[in-house]
Simulated scan of single mutants.
Amino acid sequence: MDMEKEMFDIIHTSEFSIFSLSQLPHDDNSLLLGYEGKVKSFDGRTGKIIDLWEMHEQRVNTIDVHPGNSNLVATCSADGFVRIWDLRCLGKEQPKSIKEVAHNRAVQSAYFSPTGNGLVSTSTEDTIRIWGGPHFENLSIVKHNNKAAGRLSSFSAIWGWNDSYIFIGNIQRAIDVISTENNITTPLKSEYMTNVPCRFATHPYKEGLLACAGGGKLFLWTKM
């Protein structure tokens, strides 16, 4: 989207469903697109797919680039796996991940923390898993009802502005704030939030400004 012209340009279309995408840091022209088991690297300058990797057996639900090392990418899938890849070491056939974690059911999201020292995943097994340590070997498991009812989007946990807190929606029309220090969950409630929040975004420059959306409505929270 060109903000000055208030116009969109279509840069890529596909006959197959695109379930996720991520933009490489410091490179406005490079996108990673998640399909049914595949991740494709798209170059906006040429308008072409330049790489394709078979990374999962089912749809790729999220793709996230490490904030400190753009060569590291985390993917998650409906096949129940979270995998971390080094883009410099991916072969055309049978690429190998440098880290793999299995869940008991489908994984809805997996995101690096702001420092890159943590990783959080959300699964339909009703858990939020938080990894830390140099090789993401330290694991904490937080029980959470991740089953969104009706036509709601699935719940996905995201990090706040540092590695201390995680935000995720609550079926009771609230936001659950999870402390990574002690795994204690604190709900945020408001009479103005009339829908179940399913999707979240933290403002990249204004710490404390949180947006969440659900059921066709957008809600903004500000830390006072």
Rank of each mutant, 00 (worst) to 15 (best):
M1G: 14
M3F: 13
E4W: 04
K5R: 15
K5V: 07
P25V: 05
L32G: 01
L33F: 01
L33C: 00
Y35G: 09
G37S: 09
S41C: 02
D43Q: 04
R45K: 15
R45F: 11
R45I: 06
I50F: 00
W53C: 02
M55D: 00
V60P: 04
T62L: 12
I63L: 08
D64R: 02
V73P: 03
A74S: 13
C76R: 03
R83L: 13
W85K: 06
W85M: 07
D86V: 01
Q94A: 14
K99Y: 14
E100Q: 15
H103P: 09
A110S: 13
L119T: 03
S121V: 01
S121L: 10
E125D: 15
I128M: 02
R129V: 14
I130L: 14
I130K: 03
I130N: 00
I141Y: 01
N145E: 06
S153T: 10
A157V: 11
W159Q: 10
N162G: 12
I168R: 02
N170Q: 04
A174C: 12
V177E: 02
N182L: 08
I184G: 00
T185C: 13
L188T: 00
L188H: 02
M193F: 06
K206W: 06
A213Y: 02
G216K: 11
W221N: 07
T222G: 13
